[in-house]
Design a protein around this nucleic acid. Structure first.
Lengths: 209, 209, 209, 209
DNA sequence: TATGAATGAGAGTTCATTCAT
DNA sequence: TATGAATGAACTCTCATTCAT
């Protein structure tokens, strides 16, 4: 009985992770159910048995995977620290996190780009389920820092767009930029280390009062 | 004689701009040749008459459209100005440019994300055709500024990723962020004005010496 | 379990034989996948499920069907008999064989005409798989007969072209010839009986020493 | 004015000979109007201007080309000679004739195989136009020879099938046979010379009394 | 739960043919 | 006569989805 239970979870999870891979590489439209099935080494019909439809599998992947990574990613935003330390910790945490989880990164970015609002909806539901209100918390934090004269950016939205964009964009820009400038690429590790340092400087000098 | 010459250009161009719209909304896989034909009000077979295949139409759209916007976009990078003015002009120029050309923006971003290196290749060819070497020019500029102690970021790649990301990301992030923070949206114009200001500050304070 | 196994074989075989009919009548280019599907009473997509593409279905038909008829056709060439009996048996065997299997005949002739060398390749592989070397056997036989003064034709190639052509051509020539000479056609059976006799005489008198 | 007249004939003939090439290689279904136009270096629409439709172009090619070669080919059948000389002259004449006119050969053979009766119709019309009745002449000749005890084959149809098949089949069989027997191919010329000799022997010994 | 077979809608592509000039 | 553009029907092929077992 336990065996059976485990088998079920196994198949479902095999599908989810195969789908994560496929969707992150090809997107919703480009992904092929059969290819997912093959990768997961399950029968194609099983995808429909468990997830009913392609688009439902897609959402399931997003939310399943998201909720998995969510707590880990959320930690950094809830630390009770000042802006200086915040600007230090953010890139040091976020960049390696995405380096380790490229599939997740690609999937989320895709979703973020082309379906942003529905992603936010999901994020918010995640907060609700955890009885958290991170958005409010962050907004308050920024307002507070600004009121106390610790930062120069008064608008939480601009504050976050600035912060997030320089982190998130790094992964997209890396191959493009080095090819553009014809600068012989250093190792991935070195590059992202230098990115972390550069972001830290930019944010600190750029937004600390 | 002029008649059909114009007609030809018309059809080809109608297809290109219909395809630009479709591809920017749905991506390569999601786009439908028939829908493009309908939008362009031409017979579906004409798409193949002029472009042979979907993927070739896609590339044609990218390069055709790109080379159209290219010169305009390139202008800003070739101005002979110092870093301070540079940081001022960049967001003031780039943000409205993309606001006006959303289709182009979406298409290019998609391409940038999922096919970055081939885009760069095209960009470089565009430079070659115009007898320009903007990459070298920019690299030299940054190195020069750094050597003369005008900026704090020594690495051209980081310099540009920082600069580009905060501009480009604005469009993606806007709806997401305002929904996330539940901040009643100001008008588009106001938002992007504030973005421009915020970016200018970030870059000036963040990277000027 | 046996149930679906049989079903699978059934569908595949229904497709093969429908395709044999269609291809033999219309050729590769003229054949229509939909018409094959209709004839086989299967869904059109099944053709691709089992055979991937039209041209692959075509090859499959050729090799499947060929290997089916192959052993039967090969028998006559491996009999251990002298040339006189050989010339007697060949038309008596080959002509009725093709009369019974007109689809096969048309298909093979088409292939023979327009793709001869690849057919030979296949034939040779068939021999290999059966651990036979009929070509060598036949060549040796002719050389031996000639050396022993039993036949007048020293060249195996000419020997066989002479023999095969008069048999194979009969089917093509029949309707043409009777229309050409405006000779009221006898029944098929009678015609081919007379053909067999005529060929036997021609070969015996023409190539026996 | 002459120029214009010549130009017209030129285009039509360029189309005919391009079509002959294409049809002989690919058959009716496999041939492409565009490819014919390209080969003829005329505009595709011209094919329809001159020939109305593909199938009409096909017939036109057949009959145009046929009537061109017809008289030449007919000569051999109208010589007033005995059977022995006949069997000598036939291969000596027919084989080189087809060697020189391979396009014609392929086209006619195709037609002969897959559309034999309509070809005969055309041939007969050609006779009518020339006020000849070759079929009757040949039939009478064979009957006469047989009655006078000069040949052993009483049936004109068998007589001709035997004769024609060994000649016509040579071209099809050559590459196949040499590959089949793995006999190093001699030159084309040598091969067909040996064919002529072999056919002569076969027919003489096989059908002369 | 699991499988291979089957389905139907529709996608991209091709091609003979026609049109406007 | 000649051209490039245009058309529409049909074709091969794909894919999410369902079925029978």
């Amino acid at each position: 009985m336990v065996g059976w239970k485990m088998k079920e979870q196994n198949s479902k999870e095999k599908i989810i992770s195969a789908a994560l891979k496929e969707f992150s590489l090809k997107g919703l439209e480009g992904a092929r159910m059969e290819s997912i099935a093959r990768t997961a080494s399950v029968n194609k019909a099983m995808l429909f048995y468990y997830f009913n439809s392609k688009s439902n599998l897609y959402s399931s992947v997003i939310s399943y995977v998201f909720s998995n990574y969510f707590k880990e990613l959320n930690k950094i935003f809830t630390l009770d620290i000042g802006p200086s330390e915040f600007f230090e910790k953010i890139p040091k945490y976020v960049i390696p996190f995405f380096m380790k989880n490229r599939d997740f990164y690609s999937l989320i970015i895709r979703e973020f780009f082309f379906n942003g609002e529905s992603l936010v909806e999901m994020v918010k539901n995640n907060f609700k389920n955890l009885n958290l209100d991170t958005p409010k918390l962050l907004k308050d934090k920024v307002n507070d820092w600004y009121d106390r004269g610790l930062i120069t950016e008064s608008d939480p939205i601009n504050f976050f767009i600035n912060m997030v964009s320089v982190c998130v964009f790094s992964f997209i820009a890396k191959p493009v930029a080095s090819k553009f400038f014809e600068i012989e690429t250093v190792t991935e590790d070195e590059f992202y280390k230098s990115r972390i340092k550069s972001i830290e400087n930019l944010l600190k000098n750029g937004m600390l009062a």
